[in-house]
Design a protein around this nucleic acid. Structure first.
Lengths: 343, 343
DNA sequence: CTCCTTCCTGAGAGCGCTTCCAAGCTGGGA
DNA sequence: TCCCAGCTTGGAAGCGCTCTCAGGAAGGAG
């Protein structure tokens, strides 16, 4: 209560008057200028006692630095990445940003992209932005990169060499899953794709194809289009089952759940008749029956790394783009290897 | 590109010079002061052409109004409400706030509560805050309410009569579920509670007890403690099954999934042997086997209403607290009524 | 003892905007 | 014709802070 009144009442001038020094000196104590030890202590004592908090608006106006970054997530809530992804990413960012006492303004992409862009660029409050960039084409992302606002992309590696980003190597991860299926003795391995036009979708296809090619296995007729959703997973799986596959690699876990339903509906068993693998390692993957082999990507880590990358970018704008490729982990469970393995 | 350069270059003075009027007049045009029609049009034309955007920091400093509100979510990520809840709430808020061009700063409660509180109150940028208040006791919420910052609570009705909040009537909803089980002919109806110390948990217990009392049914030994998580649901269900229940009302859907596993593990059928009901109507509830009877609460609507309540509070601070109780819907599926009903 | 350096401090000029105040103009009523 | 009300406009004072600049004190070297 007391500290609160202090924080509401105080301006730098009040503080200065209270301490008997000038406003400039108090500011130096707060921001780390050179101040004699004696003075510093005197000021700090008052600072502590009053619970003074600098006014962000004033500070921003004077210094040009706000300590606030923007986070833009274009969420097609029913389409693309489902909820756990989204909030874990946010949590990762939030954790990392709070370490540097950086505030976070959020846009969930509910307005038109142009409008969002205008707001972000226009308000002159944001020091930088982190934006999710899942689609190969995205005008908002293009606009941000073209602007002078330091920007870090999540999930999208672009041809653009000047962009900073955080992503996982979808190609390699998909390759690993597919190779695992090959190693498990499968030969007719199908792939249910993610949504076309997304980096994740396209890259996972590429990884699948690469692994198949290396194993000398055909892929013709073994690729069925999905869009990351369970329902399309079920449909696509039926298509693949008609073509006689002995394994299906799904572009994500949600799709795999749909596929699993279809496999069951046909009276087939997993993994005996058809092995199944997903991507994401969402919470439920370990609890499916059978537990699902999948790829774990540290989603929180992606968020955190994006935040770190942005911090670095702000500290050293001339240091060139920051690019972070995070590792993925192949999590092998019973859906691909049957028998006695534990979940 | 062009508009962008304009927005970067311009200050109010530039605009004024360009238009041949004073800075004050341009400001009036932007903020709706009284300006002659001719002048207004001239200024608007230039405004349009340059794509000028006022600097938020300066505007805030001068006017005391920022157009930014804070959203504080204390997420015990593995404990309480799971992801879908969280992001849907956020989306609801985001949608509603963007209607009034209100910005949103986010805290995910990763720092200590006191620290969060200091930041929020101290920065002097936020016009108001929305805070999730799930626990009966919460110092952050207390601090916010005690401060001068307009605050709207989500999910927490407090004894405090001056607080604005948005919530659903957990008691009534739980009562409805329980009564539904009674109507379906069940007599030994158990309840797996939510986490103790949360409003949702305690209120759902109260609703359960009220319905049982009205039906003249005993509850002794039929209440098992859970904490909203699947795993505790499984454990608590075993306990209840030992006591011979013919129905279980779970405090949320996740718990119900755990309970369903235990019922199966005992070789019992749902709903024939044990009817099962949940709360939340998360996506997966309709896809369980059997589909789960549960309570739907419009989570996005809660977010949106919270935002609206805060907007109103800001517009008319003397209008007294805003209290919104949103309706819930009992969604009856096969897990309680067996037979031929569709999912 | 003097001069120069170094360190600490205060004064003051803004940052870009809002808003109060007063001045100028117009037009209607006396 | 004169006066006053009402509208539009510009001037100017901040909002609370940062940061440059210059002055003063203190300490070391000559």
């Amino acid at each position: 209560m007391e500290a609160e009144e202090g924080s509401l009442a105080g301006t730098l001038d009040d503080l200065a008057a209270l301490t008997g020094v000038s406003r400039a000196t108090v500011s130096r104590v707060i921001n780390g200028g050179s101040v004699s030890e004696a003075t510093r202590e005197r000021v700090l004592a008052v600072l502590e006692r009053t619970g003074y908090r600098p006014n962000l608006a004033a500070r921003t106006l004077a210094s040009g630095r706000s300590g606030v970054v923007g986070v833009v997530m274009h969420v097609d809530s029913h389409e693309l990445f489902q909820d756990p992804y989204f909030s874990q990413l946010l949590q990762g960012m939030s954790d990392a940003l709070s370490e540097t006492a950086t505030g976070m303004m959020l846009w969930l992409g509910n307005r038109s992209k142009q409008e969002t862009l205008d707001q972000i660029l226009g308000m002159g409050l944001l020091e930088g932005v982190i934006v999710t960039a899942y689609n190969l084409e995205d005008p908002l992302v293009d606009g941000l990169l073209a602007s002078s606002v330091p920007t870090v992309l999540v999930g999208h590696r672009r041809a653009d060499l000047s962009a900073s980003y955080v992503d996982v190597d979808h190609v390699r991860a998909a390759e690993a899953v597919t190779s695992h299926l090959v190693d498990a003795g499968r030969r007719r391995i199908g792939h249910i794709t993610g949504r076309r036009g997304t980096v994740a979708g396209e890259d996972r296809i590429a990884g699948y194809e690469r692994a198949m090619a290396r194993a000398g296995l055909p892929t013709e007729g073994l690729i069925a289009d999905g869009d990351f959703r369970r329902s399309t997973g079920a449909t696509a799986a039926l298509e693949l089952l008609d073509r006689g596959v002995d394994a299906i690699f799904c572009a994500n876990d949600a799709t795999a759940v749909g596929a699993l339903e279809s496999i069951r509906a046909r009276g087939l068993r997993t993994p005996e008749d058809v092995a199944l693998a997903g991507f994401d390692d969402l919470d439920f993957a370990a609890n499916l029956d059978p537990p699902l082999t999948t790829v774990r990507q540290g989603i929180r880590a992606q968020g955190a790394e994006a935040a770190h990358a942005l911090s670095q970018l702000l500290e050293d704008p001339d240091g060139g783009p920051r690019r972070v490729i995070l590792p993925t982990e192949l999590v092998i469970r019973r859906s691909t290897v049957g028998g006695v393995q534990a979940a």
